[in-house]
Simulated scan of single mutants.
Amino acid sequence: MRQPERERPTWTFLTHHARVLLEIARNPEVRLREVASGIGITERTVQIIVNDLRAAGYLDRERVGRRNRYSLNTELRFRYPTEADVPVRRLIDMFADRR
């Protein structure tokens, strides 16, 4: 259940990039519009994030008819030096099946 705007925290532990990755992990055929609505950012921001994640090798996109299907490279490591030895799979395993 989403919190009303005035009750939302002013900061969060997960970045928008992490949240987009998790939404795609939960549903590889999700529409970017649905991701944007689910995490409270614009569809354009989600498109930019997906392009960032694709360029870095964290996900691939395949056209299936008029839709996209995403696949994740979960063995890639986090980018920040202090987490660089941890695969993103750990984040996905921790959060992707929760809702």
Results as ranks from 00 to 15, higher is better:
residue 3 Q to A: 12
residue 5 E to L: 12
residue 6 R to A: 11
residue 6 R to T: 13
residue 6 R to F: 13
residue 8 R to Q: 11
residue 8 R to I: 02
residue 10 T to Q: 13
residue 10 T to S: 10
residue 13 F to P: 01
residue 14 L to E: 11
residue 15 T to G: 06
residue 18 A to Q: 15
residue 19 R to P: 00
residue 20 V to D: 05
residue 22 L to H: 04
residue 22 L to C: 02
residue 23 E to L: 04
residue 25 A to Q: 03
residue 26 R to W: 03
residue 28 P to F: 02
residue 28 P to V: 00
residue 28 P to D: 04
residue 29 E to W: 01
residue 29 E to K: 07
residue 32 L to C: 08
residue 33 R to D: 15
residue 33 R to C: 08
residue 34 E to L: 05
residue 35 V to M: 15
residue 35 V to D: 14
residue 36 A to F: 03
residue 37 S to Q: 14
residue 37 S to G: 12
residue 38 G to D: 12
residue 39 I to P: 11
residue 42 T to Q: 09
residue 43 E to C: 06
residue 43 E to A: 09
residue 45 T to F: 05
residue 46 V to I: 08
residue 46 V to D: 06
residue 49 I to D: 09
residue 50 V to H: 05
residue 51 N to R: 13
residue 52 D to L: 13
residue 55 A to Y: 07
residue 58 Y to T: 13
residue 59 L to P: 01
residue 59 L to H: 02
residue 60 D to E: 15
residue 61 R to P: 00
residue 63 R to W: 06
residue 66 R to F: 04
residue 68 N to D: 09
residue 70 Y to S: 04
residue 71 S to M: 01
residue 72 L to M: 07
residue 72 L to V: 09
residue 72 L to K: 06
residue 73 N to T: 09
residue 74 T to F: 06
residue 74 T to Y: 08
residue 77 R to I: 03
residue 77 R to K: 14
residue 77 R to Y: 10
residue 79 R to W: 06
residue 80 Y to S: 09
residue 81 P to S: 12
residue 84 A to N: 10
residue 84 A to R: 14
residue 86 V to C: 03
residue 88 V to S: 09
residue 88 V to P: 05
residue 89 R to E: 15
residue 93 D to M: 02
residue 94 M to N: 04
residue 94 M to T: 09
residue 95 F to D: 00
residue 95 F to S: 00
residue 96 A to V: 00
residue 96 A to C: 01
residue 97 D to I: 00
residue 98 R to A: 03
residue 98 R to C: 01
residue 99 R to T: 00
